[in-house]
Simulated assay, not measured.
Amino acid sequence: MNFGSINIDYVYSVEHFVRPGETLKSDNYTIFSGGKGANQSIALARAKAEVIHAGKIGNDGAWLKEKLQKSGVNTSLIKTIDTPTGHAVIQVNKDGENAIIIHGGANQTFTDAEIEEVLDSCEAGDFLLLQNEINAVGKILQKSQNRDLTVIFNPAPITDAIQNYPLEFVDIFIINEVEGETLTKQKSPDAILNTMQKLYPKSKTVLTLGKAGVIYTHNEQRIKTAALKVKAVDTTGAGDTFIGYFLAELSRGSKIEKCLEMGTRASAICVTRKGAADSIPKLEEII
């Protein structure tokens, strides 16, 4: 069960990220489906996992729901409301790096009753995947307890409010270096992972490091997987792709080493293409 955001991505190709007071010409403009939640659901589906997406869109987002359905995502828990669909304005520079502004829209309108409805749709043993692009994440974490769920949290985009969430209820954190530094006040990967273990001793942590690979840690176990060398065109969606493939393998009972390898391979292909959801590869390509 992926309880997460659904966005429209407006992507602008630029020479460099716009500076204060600057008006910058865009070389190209494209509209993609996006949102960390939707991206991760599509990645899960393309990795052949069984995934239900719980989310909200406006009337302008009907095509996003259709895209999720065509990708193999169960969309029975996606609601259409009068509030506009969430959206992102994304700059992609000549090196393939991105800078993103997000407006929450419909993603920020979940009520207590809707949270209960989604959680009541889960079965014992299910995975519950959360990001930080919808409202009431802290409340969802609280209400997820005593339901026999494996709770996975990708705290992106990272905000100060996350420090007030009941993070002790998270079973698996999937974080990058920026998110790790915010959560732990540490900079080096080893220091981030050591502090995560101290803060959340019952939780597992997956730390993604871009071109430096990824590290998984739980208790005394620490497993590192190297990144694959590719020519990056657009890094948007790389983390979401990794998460989808990592969790798909985990849900199949694969060993952590294989979960990390599949996530790493998938994200390596993702960054060689433009867009977020549109750049997520299918399982056959990874194999």
Rank of each mutant, 00 (worst) to 15 (best):
Y12E: 11
I162Q: 10
M1H: 08
K65A: 11
K25H: 13
L24Y: 04
G96I: 04
I287G: 06
S144Q: 02
A212Y: 07
Q69F: 10
H103Y: 07
E261I: 03
R273I: 06
S76M: 01
E117W: 04
N39V: 02
R222W: 10
A248Q: 09
L199A: 12
T225W: 07
D126S: 01
I286E: 11
W63V: 08
E168L: 04
S76P: 00
L283K: 07
G180Q: 12
A124P: 15
S267T: 11
K94D: 15
D9K: 00
M262C: 05
L149I: 07
S188K: 15
I175M: 05
G61P: 04
G263C: 11
T205N: 12
K204C: 02
V151T: 13
E285Y: 07
Y200R: 13
M262W: 00
Q69C: 09
C122Y: 01
D27M: 14
G210M: 06
E114A: 11
T150P: 01
N98R: 02
G125H: 12
P281M: 08
I8M: 12
R147M: 05
Q91D: 10
L207W: 02
F110I: 15
H218C: 00
A113H: 12
S76W: 00
R222I: 12
V170I: 14
D120H: 04
I243F: 02
I90P: 12
H103T: 08
N98H: 01
D171T: 05
G96T: 01
A277F: 03
Y10D: 01
A124E: 15
G138K: 07
K255F: 11
A124N: 14
E285I: 06
L129Q: 08
T184C: 12
H53Y: 02
G138E: 13
C122N: 03
T182Q: 01
F242W: 09
Q108C: 15
A212G: 06
A227D: 08
E179G: 08
K258A: 06
T225P: 01
V271W: 05
F3E: 04
P155F: 01
I243Q: 04
L130H: 05
H103Q: 10
A156T: 02
M1E: 05
S41L: 06
I42R: 10
G21Y: 14
V271P: 03
L77M: 05
E284R: 10
S203K: 09
G239P: 01
G239R: 05
L44A: 07
N59W: 00
I172H: 08
K94Q: 15
A136P: 02
A232I: 03
G58I: 11
S254L: 05
I192E: 09
M1T: 11
I215F: 06
A54Y: 00
V118I: 07
A227G: 06
I175E: 03
N176L: 14
R265K: 12
T80M: 01
I134E: 04
Q69W: 11
I175R: 03
